[in-house]
Lab assay of single mutants.
Amino acid sequence: MAAGGDHGSPDSYRSPLASRYASPEMCFVFSDRYKFRTWRQLWLWLAEAEQTLGLPITDEQIQEMKSNLENIDFKMAAEEEKRLRHDVMAHVHTFGHCCPKAAGIIHLGATSCYVGDNTDLIILRNALDLLLPKLARVISRLADFAKERASLPTLGFTHFQPAQLTTVGKRCCLWIQDLCMDLQNLKRVRDDLRFRGVKGTTGTQASFLQLFEGDDHKVEQLDKMVTEKAGFKRAFIITGQTYTRKVDIEVLSVLASLGASVHKICTDIRLLANLKEMEEPFEKQQIGSSAMPYKRNPMRSERCCSLARHLMTLVMDPLQTASVQWFERTLDDSANRRICLAEAFLTADTILNTLQNISEGLVVYPKVIERRIRQELPFMATENIIMAMVKAGGSRQDCHEKIRVLSQQAASVVKQEGGDNDLIERIQVDAYFSPIHSQLDHLLDPSSFTGRASQQVQRFLEEEVYPLLKPYESVMKVKAELCL
């Protein structure tokens, strides 16, 4: 049975990233139509530049190519590739079939990587351009969430054990800070992308030097003109047959890092959902379990974690691919890159769409948070109580021993009897502590235990987050809708 299948058929496997999760716009960027249309555009740009620099290419040939950029006979191309065992030459023939007058000058002087690699770089750039505003929107939604809850005390956790208090907004800023680093890295790697350009079979530009009869300047002009037509500021000066596969490492490393950030955020949300302090959106008709109707599973956060793990592992592909590119190139890269580049971007696209949807509907339960604080705060307040007693004339050592005994009794009630923490009640009825009984409410005010959390939130948002989001103001209103 021949390899390949009808990918629109229910009898043929289709990647869930495309069929179930990723956005239509990201799927289109990695589609065959987008790819092969870009090949034709690159052939047109090459012909236009070659004509401008004096090669015998007519206006009629150029116009014929322009008129057929979208006229792609995919069936013919597939048949040609089956016959020739070469995808680029299959599309040269297919393009030439609908451009008979231009057929002889299509791909003039070029090698397969002229269309293959340059198209990949265009796709990487455009895919990054799709991700950047999506990530900015996630940051914006979380920034709104953090600002609104900047002063809401909550129990902090280290080692997932109760620690000092923080605020809900401050905790959210930990998430935002990681995503801001990801946004900066995505922008950097996007701006650092260079075009492969017009380089020939081993990167020496020998074929173009021959076409222009040894004119170095025209060869350099050709490279520059096509690079500018493709919208790049610069091209690699040095290439082998391909652009260095280190570029793929750079791009997928940034995406993998984004995956790590999203995994951490969504894990926190899942843990908070278990504590009943916070939940992701839950639709009115949504079913959490087929057997347990009360369940409210954090399905979206779980999906993000599941896909983020996949995204983090994909960076190993370009690392290994770059390491086995012998001399000017081997074909070890080809099949692998067809999979890992598309999957990385479709996965990143999915987790950003999902995280935006989550961040637009996060639900906080202040009463649950308050109750958990009441359970733990008495123990945390013991040092403040000791200091207040010393100020009232008591002995630190005597007070410490009193607190120690009462704390152990209260802990026994919590752990052995399943009761509430009654340390404060014990202190309130103990005559030894009568000098500070009137101060206990103040000493137990949760806001006095959150330090500068709310001020940190305000400063972080104003100095770091809002300036970073400013270039994306025009796209901030787009909502994230999930079908599944």
Rank of each mutant, 00 (worst) to 15 (best):
A3S: 12
G5M: 15
H7I: 13
H7K: 15
H7D: 09
G8S: 15
G8P: 15
S9M: 15
S15P: 13
S19Y: 14
R20L: 01
Y21C: 01
P24V: 12
Y34F: 11
K35A: 09
R37A: 12
R37G: 11
W39A: 10
R40F: 00
L42W: 00
L46E: 05
A47I: 02
A49C: 10
E50P: 00
Q51R: 10
L53Q: 09
L53E: 05
L53A: 11
L55R: 12
T58H: 14
T58S: 14
E60T: 12
E60I: 10
Q61R: 06
Q61V: 09
I62G: 02
E64A: 13
K66T: 13
L69F: 08
L69A: 09
I72Y: 12
I72T: 08
D73G: 08
D73S: 10
D73P: 13
K82V: 15
L84E: 15
V88G: 06
T94V: 15
T94N: 10
T94M: 14
G96P: 00
G96N: 08
C98E: 12
C98A: 11
P100I: 10
P100S: 12
P100A: 10
A102I: 09
A103V: 14
A103P: 07
G104T: 14
L108E: 01
T111M: 04
S112T: 01
V115R: 02
I122G: 02
A127T: 06
L128Y: 07
L130M: 10
L131M: 13
L132M: 12
K134L: 13
V138L: 14
I139G: 08
I139R: 02
I139S: 10
S140R: 14
R141Y: 15
L142W: 12
A143L: 06
D144P: 12
D144A: 15
K147D: 11
R149K: 13
L152N: 10
T154I: 10
L155K: 01
T158Y: 00
H159R: 01
H159E: 02
H159A: 00
T166S: 06
T166P: 07
V168I: 08
G169I: 01
K170F: 05
K170I: 00
R171L: 02
C172K: 05
C173W: 01
I176M: 15
Q177Y: 14
Q184V: 10
V189P: 07
R190V: 11
D191T: 13
D192G: 13
R194C: 10
F195W: 07
F195V: 06
R196N: 07
V198F: 02
V198N: 09
G200H: 01
Q205C: 13
L209V: 11
G214S: 10
D216H: 11
D216E: 10
H217W: 13
K218I: 08
V219L: 14
E220T: 11
E220Q: 12
K224P: 06
M225P: 02
E228N: 08
K229C: 07
K229S: 13
K229M: 08
K233M: 12
I238N: 06
I238H: 07
Q241M: 04
R245D: 00
R245C: 00
E250T: 12
E250F: 08
V251P: 03
L255A: 09
S257D: 07
S257R: 06
G259L: 02
S261T: 11
V262L: 10
V262G: 09
I265L: 15
T267C: 09
I269R: 03
I269D: 00
L271D: 03
A273S: 13
N274A: 09
E277Q: 05
E277D: 04
E279S: 06
E279R: 01
E280F: 02
E283R: 07
Q286A: 03
I287F: 01
G288Q: 02
S289H: 01
S290M: 02
M292W: 02
M292H: 03
K295Y: 00
R296E: 05
E302T: 05
R303S: 02
C304S: 10
S306V: 03
A308G: 13
T313K: 05
L314H: 11
V315N: 06
V315P: 11
Q320E: 05
Q320L: 11
Q320W: 09
T321E: 00
A322E: 12
Q325R: 02
F327E: 07
E328G: 05
D333W: 01
S334H: 07
S334E: 02
A335W: 02
N336A: 14
I339G: 05
L341W: 11
L341D: 12
A342L: 07
E343Y: 08
F345R: 03
T347E: 07
A348F: 04
D349T: 10
I351F: 06
I351P: 02
L355T: 10
I358G: 05
S359P: 12
G361Y: 08
P366A: 06
V368A: 06
V368N: 04
I369E: 04
Q375I: 07
P378D: 03
F379K: 04
F379P: 06
T382Q: 08
T382Y: 05
T382N: 06
I385A: 04
M387C: 11
A388K: 05
M389Q: 10
V390M: 11
A392P: 07
A392V: 13
G394A: 10
G394I: 06
R396T: 04
D398S: 12
C399M: 06
K402L: 09
L406Q: 07
A410M: 07
A411G: 14
A411K: 10
K415E: 06
G419Y: 08
N421Q: 06
D422T: 13
I424C: 15
R426Q: 09
I427M: 13
D430A: 11
D430M: 09
F433R: 03
S434R: 13
S434N: 11
P435Q: 11
H437S: 11
Q439R: 08
D441K: 12
L443G: 04
S448T: 12
S448C: 14
G451A: 07
G451C: 02
A453Y: 05
Q455V: 10
R459S: 13
R459I: 12
F460C: 07
L461F: 07
E462P: 06
E463W: 10
E464T: 11
L468P: 04
K470G: 14
Y472L: 15
Y472N: 13
Y472P: 07
V475E: 10
L482S: 11
L484P: 07
